[in-house]
Design a protein around this nucleic acid. Structure first.
Lengths: 171, 171, 171, 171
DNA sequence: CATGAATGAGCATTCATTCAT
DNA sequence: CATGAATGAATGCTCATTCAT
C-alpha cells in the first residue's frame, strides 16, 4: 500500500496508531462479553484470548509493539496505562464476584490475583518467545487456571483447545 | 561519548547490543547464586530481581528493548530464546527439588509452574506499565509467592521489601 | 473550497496562477484610466496604487508570489517581463507628455524616470517589509512625487491619504 | 553535494538560511566601508552594489528568495525587517551628514530619501525582471543619483561602469 | 459539475555506518 | 586510539495531480 494513501486516511502516524489500538481493543473486548457468572467470564476470557492468539495473532504482535514503543512515546504510554488499569479493574471485579459466588477461595486477594493474571497474560502474549512459545504459553495459563480453580472440565470447549505444538518434554 | 568512538569499540549496533546483553545476563545471574535449599533459591531469585529492579532498573529497560528487537532481528531472537529456555529449565529444576524436599505441593507440575513464573516475571519487569507499575508488580509477585508457598516470613528480608508506592485501593 | 474542484476549473497550478494574474492586472489597470492630463494620470496612478494597497492588499501579495515563481518558471517570467515593459512604456509616455505640457522638468529623461518609478513601486509594494512597511512606503512615494513635482496640493484626495501608522522618528 | 552532508554542517534548514544571510550581509557591508565624506560613501554604496551585481549575482538572487519567502516564514521575516531598518538608518544618517556638508539639497527629507533609495534598490536588485533588466536597473539608479546630485563625474570609476547590455531604445 | 480516493515526487530530517587522519 | 567528516538509506509528511464516479 502506498504510504501517501495511508496518510490520506490517517493524517499522522499517531492517528494511525490510535486507529490500530481502537480496532485491537474492540477485538479484545469480545473475550469479556460472554454470558454467565463471574467464573464463567474469567474462564471465557482466557479461552477467548487463546482463540484470538490462534486466529488473529497480529493483534498480539501489534500490542507488543505498542507496549515496547511506549517506553519512548508518552502518548502511547498513556494509552497503555489506561488499558492496563481498566483490564486490572475488570478482572478484580470479576474475581470479587467469584468469591461471593463461592467459586473462588476467599483467602485470595482479588486485586493481587488480578495483577498476577494481567502480568502473566502480558508476559505470554506480548513478548516474543522462541520455538517453545506455544508450549510455555499453554503451561503458564494452565497453572494459573488451576490455582484459580477455573480449569475447564469435560466441556465442549475441549474441541477448540490449542493444539499442542510440541509434545510435553519428558523430564 | 562520541558516536564514532563507540563504533570503534562496537563495530555495529548489533555488536553493541550483544555487549550490553552479556553484561545484563551477568547481573541477572547474581539472583540465582544464593546458598541454601531449592526453596531458598527461588525465594532469593524473586528477592534479587526486586533488588535489581530498585538498584539497576536500566537492566530491565535493556531487556525490554531486546525483546522488541527480537521481533525483527533473528540474531537477538535466538539469544532471547536461549535465555528463556535456560531460565525455565533452572526454575523447573529448583521446583522439582523443592517438591522432593517437601517444600512444594506435589500436585503442582514443576514445568507448568516454571512457565508461569517466567511469564509473570517477564510481564511485570519487561513491559512498561503506568503509574501503578510498582504496586501491580508487588501484587503479582506476592500472589505468585503465596501460591508457591514461599512467602517470606518474619525474615530480615522485610527490611529491603519494595516500598508500597501507593496505598492498596479500598474497594 | 475543495481542491479537486479547483483542479476542475484550473487544470494545473500554473493555470490557476495565470487566472489570478489576469484578474490582478485588470485591477491594476484601473489605476491608469483616470481622465485629465498626463500629470493627473501619473498622480492618480500613484493614488490608485495607494488605494489598492489599502483595499485589496492580496493583489500585491499575489504579484509578489509571482515574482518569486518567475525565477524558476519561464512561463511566469515571460508574463512578468511583459508587465514590466508595458508599465515602463506607459509611464515613459505619460512623462514625455507631461514634459510637453510643461508640467515636468525638461532635463529629466522620461525613460530613466519611468524606470525609477517602476523599480520603486515594485520595491515598496511587492517586497514584504517589517512593521514600518507603511511608513517607509509613504516616505518613498512622497519623495518620488516631490522630485517629479506631482505632489498633491490641497486636493480632496488628502482625505484618503494613507494614515501614518507610526510617528515620524525624531532624529 | 549530498544533502546529508549539508545537514552535518547546518543541522536545520533555518540554520542554513541564517548562514547564507550572514555571508550575504558581510558581502553587502563591503559596499559601505569606503573612505571619504558622506557623499562619497553613498556614491560608493551605489557603485559597490553595481559591482556585486556583476561579480556575485547570486547574492541578490538569494536575498530575493529570502525577501519573498519572508511572507510565510516569520523567522526570515524578522531577519529581513532588521536588515531593512538598519539599511534605512544608515542611509538616513549619511544623507543628513551630506546635507551638513552642503552636498545635498537641504529641502530633501533624509528619511524620505533613504526610504526611496532602499525601495528602489530592492526593486531593481531583488525582483527578477526580463531581458531589459540591466538597462532598467541602470536607468533607475542613474535617475536616483541625478536627483540626489551624486552622479559620478569624469572619474576613473567610468572604467568599471556596468556595460550597457542593450542599446538605449530609440523612442 | 463536483468530489472522494489515490498516488508519485519531493522535502526536511535522523540514523547507522565508513573512512581518512 | 579516537574523532571529525561524509553519506546511503529510511522516515514522516506535504503537495500537485489524476481518475472514477
Amino acid at each position: 500500500m502506498n504510504i501517501a494513501t495511508l496518510h490520506y486516511y490517517f493524517p499522522t502516524k499517531e492517528a494511525l496508531v490510535k486507529g490500530v489500538v481502537h480496532h485491537a481493543l474492540g477485538r479484545f473486548r469480545t473475550t469479556l462479553t460472554a454470558e454467565g457468572g463471574a467464573t464463567d467470564l474469567v474462564r471465557s476470557h482466557f479461552e477467548g484470548l487463546r482463540r484470538l492468539g490462534r486466529e488473529e495473532p497480529q493483534l498480539f504482535a501489534v500490542m507488543g509493539e505498542l507496549a515496547l514503543r511506549a517506553v519512548r512515546d508518552p502518548g502511547i504510554a498513556a494509552i497503555m496505562r489506561e488499558i492496563d488499569e481498566t483490564w486490572h479493574a475488570t478482572l478484580r471485579g470479576l474475581l470479587r464476584r467469584a468469591q461471593k459466588d463461592g467459586a473462588l477461595d476467599k483467602k485470595i486477594d482479588p486485586s493481587d490475583a488480578a495483577a498476577l493474571i494481567v502480568a502473566t497474560l502480558k508476559g505470554v502474549y506480548l513478548l516474543p518467545a522462541g520455538s517453545l512459545r506455544q508450549e510455555r504459553l499453554t503451561q503458564a495459563l494452565r497453572q494459573l487456571e488451576r490455582w484459580l480453580g477455573i480449569t475447564r472440565g469435560r466441556t465442549s470447549l475441549a474441541s477448540v483447545a490449542p493444539r499442542r505444538t510440541l509434545p510435553r518434554p519428558v523430564e
